[in-house]
Write a protein that binds this DNA or RNA. Structure first.
Length: 647
RNA sequence: GCUGCUGUAGCGUAGGGGUAGCGCAACGCCUUGGUAAGGCGUAGGUCGUGAGUUCGAUUCUCACCAGCAGCACCA
């Protein structure tokens, strides 16, 4: 390699080409050297993979990429700058407001403020207007590096106690950077766009909420303003449209419209399942029932109310009482608690009679109605409730069977999700929390077992440190719905607490008494929540086997009533869920109504059909019609309505 | 639980110190119409609950309950 003059550096561009430039040149200089168009479009640079300001002098050879509005990274830059813009606007409009942090989040950003007066929704348009004003002013950005103590002192003098705290907590080797946007300044790691004008105006403030300082409920509550920001107005409009789409899928709305369930004040957080909703519930339940039967589970039912002493023994009274519904029984001076979990009940069944190692594993399943006192703010439709049904099971086994059982349970979960229409599933391994029981040795072993199970299944997973249950580590299964939202549903947990506390035993091969290992697993998790997910995933347009009403026979004229009833009866006899609509309404009206009600098949009969013993079939989502003979139709629909596990 | 907002007929909404309208749904009559809203009419509300202010409260104030959006929580 030839010697390089001391004042020159070599810049490698993404296409592999190398440019030689003066030491201390900036990203902006290099962009300008490449072309005026690029210079204008440049937002920031990536130097050796790290995002930097356009005006940062480059002192040594580097790989460099010019970031423009088109780059993937552009959104992050725009959003971060918009967050600053928000803070600047807020401080201009509401003097005395302290700034804290303002990170990017999915689709946008937020900024947390400390202010005595609350923000109201009316403030958002005012703040937005101010932000746009600042964009028009095109204030230049200036990066400055401060000496730490001076920075702390400076922000304290401004009354910015949170900022001062952040600076104090910065790692000792980190530069304290303060960015100016015009006169306004903020502590920030950067990078930033060259001026406020570069941000554009494709942003919108979306909501206000309370948020705890550093995410801890023990700390002061700040006021958070959320916003979204995009490259251009078109992207912003598309995003807002996406939000609208999600709103249309809301299970609370669809649940009401499709007469699936309701919730009322006298039973907060509990679901009244209507006939149609409960049809869905039972269909799903029976599907799971078939699957676990095949997987050699046994099904049980255990009491809802159990005496306090049992919960004391299980450890729930000490660790979980806050979340339990307690019933004082006056007549007997007893305290009972409604079960928040099924596990203690299942151990009671296991403990009836002496078990041999030959009987293990025992896979004990229950569709168990559990009740937990969830914080009022956590309740959400049927997704987060206080009374719910778990598709629960506990597997009692020899310790050496644990990995195989964890694999079998995980496979059941994957298979079920796939059959239900969810192809993308992610797995997390949640490891030991701070507050836990059991020796480190047991935890080491249990975590290793779950990791080994994943490895043998060839299943990638991410670690979720500290998120395990107090009694053992767990695998968490998150599925992704039609619009990309993740839902944590299934779980496989190792429990070394309960067998110990209830002194569960089996007789081993050598005649000794041994403690069984226990695996706790749920596939759907909560039936209620899972049905909520299904509603939103399918937007109420369920696959035929799940649809509460599978077909509606609608008449055109009253003369066809008799045949319509006959046809509906025949389809019902074949095993389909069918309704008739004989009302004195025009067919257009009926088509519209049943389409909106999301009936998968509309079977229209008029004089012609009655005569020929056929039905005019119209499938939901199409406007095509097909005339099919009654017998053939029954077969066709029945085939389509076959549950995925019976295909 | 915390912050903010909201609560009017089954659903969606208007209004506002003088006891409430509209649309859809419901019900009745007319219409029997061939694939996304036929016509006319009727009924339905102690305006979330309780207190206070007032001659008078659904409207204003307070408390409570519930819902919504976040935050925290989700063993």
């Amino acid at each position: 390699m030839s010697a390089q003059p001391a004042n020159e550096i070599r810049i490698t561009l993404p296409d592999g080409s190398v440019r030689t430039t003066t030491r201390g040149a900036t990203g902006a200089d290099i962009a300008a050297a490449i072309g005026p168009g690029l210079a204008k479009a440049a937002l920031a640079v990536k130097i050796d993979g790290e995002m930097k300001d356009l005006d940062l002098p480059i002192e040594k050879d580097a790989k460099l990429e010019i970031i423009t509005r088109k780059s993937d990274e552009a959104l992050d830059l725009i959003r971060h700058d918009t967050a600053h813009l928000l803070a600047q606007a807020v401080q201009a409009l509401y003097p005395g407001t302290q700034v804290t942090i303002g990170p990017n989040i999915e689709d946008g950003f937020f900024y947390d403020f400390a202010r005595n007066e609350p923000f109201t929704p009316d403030d958002l348009p005012k703040i937005e207007a101010k932000m746009k004003e600042l964009v028009r002013a095109d204030l230049p950005t200036k990066r400055t590096v401060w000496e730490r103590d001076k920075a702390v002192k400076h922000f304290l003098e401004l009354g910015e106690t949170y900022k001062a705290e952040i600076i104090r907590d910065l790692p000792a080797d980190e530069e304290v950077r303060v960015y100016y946007h015009g006169d306004w300044h903020d502590l920030c790691r950067g990078p930033h766009l060259a001026s406020t004008g570069k941000i554009g105006t494709a942003f919108k403030l979306t909501k206000i909420s309370g948020a705890y300082w550093r995410g801890d409920a023990k700390n002061a509550q700040l006021q958070r303003i959320y916003g979204t920001a995009w490259r251009d107005e078109k992207e912003l409009a598309a995003y807002l449209q996406r939000l609208e789409e999600a709103e249309k899928r809301d299970h609370r709305k669809i649940g009401r419209e499709m007469h699936l369930f309701h919730i009322q004040d006298e039973a907060v957080g509990q679901v009244f399942w209507h006939p149609k909703g409960y049809t869905l519930f039972r269909t799903l339940e029976n599907y799971i029932r078939r699957k676990i039967k095949r997987a050699d589970y046994v099904e049980v039912k255990t009491p809802l109310l159990l005496d306090r002493t049992l919960w004391e023994r299980s450890g729930h009274w000490a660790k979980y009482r806050e979340n339990m519904f307690i019933a004082e029984v006056e007549h007997e001076k007893k305290t009972l608690a409604v079960k928040p979990m099924n596990c203690p009940g299942h151990v009671q069944i296991f403990n009836q009679g002496l078990k041999s190692y030959r009987e293990l594993p025992i896979r004990m399943a229950e569709f168990g109605a559990c009740h937990r006192y969830e914080p009022s703010g956590a309740l959400h439709g049927i997704m987060r409730v206080r009374g719910f049904t778990m598709d629960d099971a506990h597997i009692f086994m020899r310790p050496d069977q644990m990995i195989d059982e964890a694999i079998a349970a995980s496979r059941l979960i994957f298979e079920t999700y796939k059959e239900l229409g969810f192809d993308n599933v992610q797995v997390k391994l949640a490891t030991r929390p701070e507050n836990r029981i059991g020796s480190d040795e047991i935890w080491d072993q249990s975590e290793a077992h779950l990791a080994e199970a994943c490895k043998r299944m060839n299943c990638p997973y991410t670690l979720s440190p500290g998120d395990g249950a107090f009694y053992g580590p767990k695998l968490e299964f998150t599925l992704f719905d039609a619009i990309g939202r993740g839902w944590q549903c299934g779980t496989v947990q190792i429990d070394f607490n309960l067998p110990e506390r209830f002194e569960a035993e089996y007789v081993a091969e050598d005649g000794s008494r041994q403690r069984p290992a226990m695996l706790h697993r749920a596939v759907l998790g909560s039936m209620e929540r899972f049905i909520g997910v299904l509603i939103e995933h399918y937007a109420g347009k369920f696959p035929l086997w799940l649809a509460p009403v599978q077909a509606v026979v609608a008449t055109i004229v009253n003369d066809a009533d008799g045949y319509a009833k006959e046809a509906a009866a025949a389809l019902k006899l074949a095993g389909l869920r069918v309704e008739t609509d004989l009302r004195n309404e025009k067919i257009n009206y009926k088509v519209r109504e049943h389409s909106l009600a999301k009936a998968p098949y509309l079977l229209v009969v008029g004089r012609k059909e009655a005569e020929a013993r056929t039905l005019s079939v119209r499938k939901l989502g199409t406007d095509k019609q097909e005339t099919v003979a009654l017998d053939a139709l029954a077969k066709q629909l029945l085939a389509e309505a076959t549950p995925p596990d019976m295909v």
